[in-house]
Design a protein around this nucleic acid. Structure first.
Lengths: 240, 240
DNA sequence: CAGTGGTCTAGACCACAAT
DNA sequence: TTGTGGTCTAGACCACTGT
């Protein structure tokens, strides 16, 4: 009973969409029918379908029924990686990702970081600089800041793998939300050098603040991407 | 009664967050108290707060209560523009946006567009090319395709203003969802010329498929942005 | 008209944090 | 222990689409 019923149903139906049991463009069984199938109430079914609707996998219409979206490509990462709360390592899993740690130390947060992470300016944070390489092509430079109090025990060995795995599996914490901003950015000389781009070319910068289920901000990171390697996808759904 | 109760409550509370009645970092009244205030049930309050939670404005925790996020900046567009379902004109309102229509005609969709818009390859679509200028600085080139059947009566006068306003106000349709992808892109010679960038610099490309409340795709658009003028923000929230 | 999805309620019960 | 938010139900009623 660790998992709510509506989540289990959401996952089951999503699996049916992925494996083709519910074909794209086809109609889903009606609410009452699904309620009977999963031995639950109509409202619980609605909660499950609402998530799929927000993810863009289905469209629900009064009077007309529920249709599996046919505009979703099979390769779409939102199908398997429903959200981006996974860190770089997971988002690009299977792409032969290599990590080079360029810097790893601690520092006092200072006013700006303190404001972003909602901690005291004198609190200590990790300062991590990493170069991410896809199939031998330098692709991303990441600057990551994390409060030591929240994420104790980081080591260089962890940085070379995945910080997110360490947080969720070793520390047993739950990552809950993230604030993401995408802009253009001019590389520094060092960055242009490391990423093998011309100095007058732009990079794509992704700024992220990430939160635990306690509501505490545990990460502020700036990652600068070679444009050719950058891809970001999201679905936006009106709530009202 | 045109608006659901939970939406009205969501908007009211959001307004209180914006105007400071509910200060950032402070605690919101509990569910039962809000239910009494708004003369409604606990579940309806929850539905309203769930939206705010997904937008990143509040954090709810079992046992601990609901806290107004203090990481949201006042300038954050998500406060006033909750979602990006507004088209370029609205997203950049107040920035002295000028539009130059570079091309406007109709064509048969063809296989690729037909697949993206879920129409027949022989159906006709508008093909629109526009240059968007901010305060005199060329910033975006937009290529927009819309099925004529869905959006009848477009004219060049409308293109110079806002297609979205025409769709929602004149045609009375409701825009419901959008699928957005952000990547890097190399400009063509024409684009580099129009946007006043070097030919070897990258642009930031936003590809969008937008849907009506009927579930029909009414727009496929590719917009290429000068990196310095590009900004995209989103909040990601775990559902389970 | 029948069938669909959407809203709303009262109430029961559970999981969790603070005290 | 108290109060919080989260889940789930049965059932009523409404709004809408398709026929």
């Amino acid at each position: 009973m660790s998992e709510p019923k509506y989540i289990a149903i959401y996952q089951a139906i999503k699996q049916h969409i992925i494996d083709g049991t519910f074909a794209r463009g086809s109609m889903l069984p009606s609410g009452p029918k699904l309620a009977e199938t999963y031995d639950t109430s109509a409202i619980t079914i609605k909660k499950a379908l609402d998530i799929l609707s927000r993810e863009g996998l289905i469209t629900r219409r009064r009077g007309a029924g529920t249709i599996v979206s046919d505009t979703v490509k099979a390769s779409d990462s939102s199908l398997t990686n429903p959200k981006h709360l996974r860190g770089t390592s997971r988002r690009f899993a299977g792409q032969n990702l290599t990590t080079r740690v360029l810097g790893f130390d601690t520092m006092q947060a200072g006013d700006e970081l303190a404001g972003l992470l909602n901690i005291s300016a004198t609190d200590f944070v990790y300062r991590i600089t990493r170069l991410r390489i896809f199939d031998g092509r330098p692709a991303i430079i990441e600057y990551t800041y994390m409060p030591i109090l929240l994420i104790p025990g980081l080591s260089e060995a962890i940085l070379e793998k995945s910080i997110y795995d360490y947080i969720t599996q070793t520390l047993g914490l739950t990552i809950n939300a993230a604030n993401i901003q995408v802009t253009g950015a001019v590389p520094t000389e060092t960055e242009a050098d490391l990423l093998c781009v011309e100095g007058n070319d732009h990079l794509i910068q992704m700024t992220q603040t990430a939160f635990l289920s306690t509501g505490a901000a545990f990460e502020y990171s700036i990652s600068r991407h070679v444009p050719d390697e950058f891809e970001f996808h999201t679905v936006i759904k009106k709530e009202y």
